[in-house]
Nucleic acid binder design. Structure first.
Lengths: 115, 115
DNA sequence: GTCGTAGTTTGACATCCGTCGTAGTACGTA
DNA sequence: TACGTACTACGACGGATGTCAAACTACGAC
């Protein structure tokens, strides 16, 4: 077979993504850090373990799933790793500038609280 | 006395407002409707009862309090009514364009799901 | 086949959340 | 003072949430 789709992951279609779900997904500090990290990578993929969150593995899994089910990130398996990317195109099409302004707000707050 | 500040309500200072709190406050459909309603009014105040939500009075009180404590709205008593306004200036200063893009996203989703 | 790495699943736990109804408080007006 | 309006406070309830530890699965490399 050519690249059997093993261990497929459920993602909402673009039209199934809901604003409330996206906002809720982004309202957790850990998840916001993940999204900010992924945004900084551009199109490059990141494994779940690439992002340093001071929480257990199972909690990490949980947060990534919330982000995926809200339609914020896309996840695919590559060997033993699970790679993540932001669904920028889908989010921008549905909610123009939303992601950008949330990321900007996050950066602003970080600067404000730590700088 | 000249306008004794009876029944004062606690509001977070601008610098106490947190992005996660704002996003969480906005991630509930009822609260998003309130914010959208207030935004449409501009600087004009609205009483809690002006907004038609199909929920009980106590739940309405709860949602307005969440919005106030997150720093999204300002509430003051005027006689028996409690008037609400968006804290646009504070939010725009902290998180430029965030409110605008969330409101735009909300409008877009409404159009998409109902139009 | 064995091992290590990466992530999942399950179950538990405390907390928070959205909701309600009932009873209560504050205020304006008659 | 009595009444109606507008909102609050309290207590309850079911369900979601964030967290963990322990046991498990999938994959690549040796």
């Amino acid at each position: 077979m050519t690249s059997t789709p093993v261990r497929a992951l459920a993602h909402p279609l673009r039209e199934e993504i809901r604003l409330e779900g996206v906002l809720h997904a982004l309202s957790d500090p850990m998840r916001l850090r993940v999204v900010s990290y992924l945004a900084a990578l551009g199109d490059q993929e990141a494994a779940c373990s690439d992002i340093e969150l001071a929480i257990s593995k199972s909690t990490t899994t949980h947060h990534f799933r919330v982000l995926r089910e809200a339609g914020v990130i896309r996840q695919i398996y590559r060997g033993t790793a699970k790679m993540n990317t932001l669904r920028r195109e889908d989010l921008d099409a549905l909610f123009p500038h939303l992601l950008q302004s949330v990321l900007g707000a996050d950066a602003a707050q970080r600067r404000r609280l730590l700088g």
